[in-house]
Design a protein around this nucleic acid. Sequence first.
DNA 1: GTGATTGCAAATCTTTTGCACTAAA
DNA 2: TTTAGTGCAAAAGATTTGCAATCAC
Lengths: 138, 138
Amino acid sequence: MDRPYREAIEKLKTADLRPTRQRLALSRLLFAEGPRHVTAEALHDQAVEAGVRVSLATVYNTLHQFTRAGLLRQVVVDGSKTYFDTNTIDHHHFYHEVDGRLVDIPGEAVTVAGLPASPPGTEVVRVDVIVRLAGEGK
Amino acid sequence: MDRPYREAIEKLKTADLRPTRQRLALSRLLFAEGPRHVTAEALHDQAVEAGVRVSLATVYNTLHQFTRAGLLRQVVVDGSKTYFDTNTIDHHHFYHEVDGRLVDIPGEAVTVAGLPASPPGTEVVRVDVIVRLAGEGK
DNA sequence: GTGATTGCAAATCTTTTGCACTAAA
DNA sequence: TTTAGTGCAAAAGATTTGCAATCAC
């Protein structure tokens, strides 16, 4: 029983989610390497390719549960698809409009100045900065 | 023939769009008063209420044509709905997550500092700042 | 066992499309 | 006329839901 496996189980237990086969597999796909941005569809494809038997509905469920648990963050850049970001630390994004690719911009680097106070009775949940890019890029 | 009517016709002609009954009606609903944020559904409802006979498909077409012509701007804040903004000048948004309401933040007020250079071969189309709000608000 | 989780297929919601019909130039 | 624009209903895409079967505890 390797280390990442135990960690994955702990992670789920902490989030009050039963470490089922599907959740464990998705968790490992998501958090195995550095930060990534996935859509439900893409993660499902990746899981199937990796030989994990899981339904698309369960992928959707899992992504939302992970988001609720603070393990993922939703990024809205395109009306038609929902992206989930494994980087939950404060940061921003480059968005390549041509191919839909997202690239992180570290949060520490960026400063947003001059924002008006939030309306009375409201609270700022988050400030998102999205830099929309055109052109081929890398 | 009142002034706003002539202006509406001019606006459409300039955009190389035939001033049809539907486009004129939608144009007047959209630009009659100050800046607004609408969804296709909402604009269609408003049109129907106002006694304008227009189909939802035409509302979608028209919103996209107006956007292409630079008369509107698309705002992405929520995966499920597409908002169109009659304010095409550089600016940002408060987004009330509870009720989906959008409020403009003047562009001059805000400064975004520290953004990394855009990746080689790409060009910045636009920088969007979205301040997500929780709580009842006004 | 018992309640949480999963899978499947059907349902939903928003947006787009194909095409015959209508209207603008 | 001639071509652009419209309406309808069907199609498409992403996401959600209902419910019986299955799994974790």
